[in-house]
Design a protein around this nucleic acid. Sequence first.
DNA 1: AAATTTGTGTACCGTACGGTACGGTTCGGA
DNA 2: TCCGAACCGTACCGTACGGTACACAAATTT
Lengths: 218, 218
Amino acid sequence: MGEAATAMDEWTERQKDVLDAVLDLLVTGGDAVTTAAIARKANCSKETLYKWFGDRDGLLAATVRWQASRVRAGNFDAQHLDASQLRESLEAFAVNWLSVISSRTSIALNRVGISHAGSGKSGLGRMVLANGRFAIGERLKPLLEAGRANGLLAFDDTETAFRTFFGLVGRDVQIRLLLGDRLETTEAEIARDAARATQQFFALYGAPQTQKPLQGRI
Amino acid sequence: MGEAATAMDEWTERQKDVLDAVLDLLVTGGDAVTTAAIARKANCSKETLYKWFGDRDGLLAATVRWQASRVRAGNFDAQHLDASQLRESLEAFAVNWLSVISSRTSIALNRVGISHAGSGKSGLGRMVLANGRFAIGERLKPLLEAGRANGLLAFDDTETAFRTFFGLVGRDVQIRLLLGDRLETTEAEIARDAARATQQFFALYGAPQTQKPLQGRI
DNA sequence: AAATTTGTGTACCGTACGGTACGGTTCGGA
DNA sequence: TCCGAACCGTACCGTACGGTACACAAATTT
């Protein structure tokens, strides 16, 4: 993850403004995201767009990376954690993740990536995946493993444990939103769902009272 | 759900052939699904396409309904079920659902629905949702409630219980496939995941030994 | 058998959009 | 003050594609 900051300084301020304009257009699903509309919204010429970003797909890819570069939430320092710290961290992760996938920005970018994946060119899809599903995985796994090291969680495969957490948190929210379902995702609702998912996760992967993790769990 | 069979006899055999051609083109993501390509593949004229289905969106909507009409798996007759029957039924549901969302057909149709949802017109998205997420929900809920009535499951809200099962089964599979991730979904893998999800669901919602459902569970 | 219907195949039209060219303007450096 | 680079705004080009028109064949009706 050495290139964490590349997208931050890869472009000038003016260029970031352009990328923000693209995001604005993507999120406001009303009108199509044509190069002409982007240029109009960003008060720049189409020629400049192509000079800076190559072609339309390059511009969209840059937009995905730009958005991803400023979503990175602070990593959790997870040494010497006790049960309540772990629970709070997991719940915070769940809240963050639910907030992200419920945001209009995430919905729009995922739609773009999915559309591109359906058109053969899989670059954007992989990029969205890397900055969404896989980024959250890499950030969460250390916490899970710290929990296991401290005898709070019991699992064999970190990936499986993470995917279970992912499923318990996300459930059907993302696919429903992507398909246009009006799903109220208030802050209170998200907090409640995050708490429920965390509780369920502990019910499945919480270590028994003894400090040593139990073998043979899934 | 009285209109279960409408899409089956709404079209003539010839028209169903056309819809199958559309499905073929959608699944074979190589070339774009233009009306010209559809007409060529179906050996019919574009004029006939428009006469039968109105416009391109109508054709896509008909295709979604046509595919949905023949996916309906047999409902489970769930009276007097014991624990192993319930487990088997849930596992069968999970296998079926994982097979569906892993199929190229489902991926293609969901991509179309999502693209349309991103373009304002939400008709196709809602249709895919109704025949996917919500159809499986309506089919599974009776089984869950039968399990509760027989003292095998304990939950207050059927919808919440179902969504948990949905999350445990689907996890990150659908979004990864939609975004173009190569994810091996062999039959064996699906069977293993279905068994794991079912086991986890029982761990969360299985009633304690006493026949009476325990109150206060989530 | 003539007429009507139904459908195929091809040609055509209008528009939207990605990409390019170019004149005009601003701005920093010599 | 002059020059060149960067950039804006607009006009333009080519193509792809949704939708329509039309000529012709097959089938069905009368």
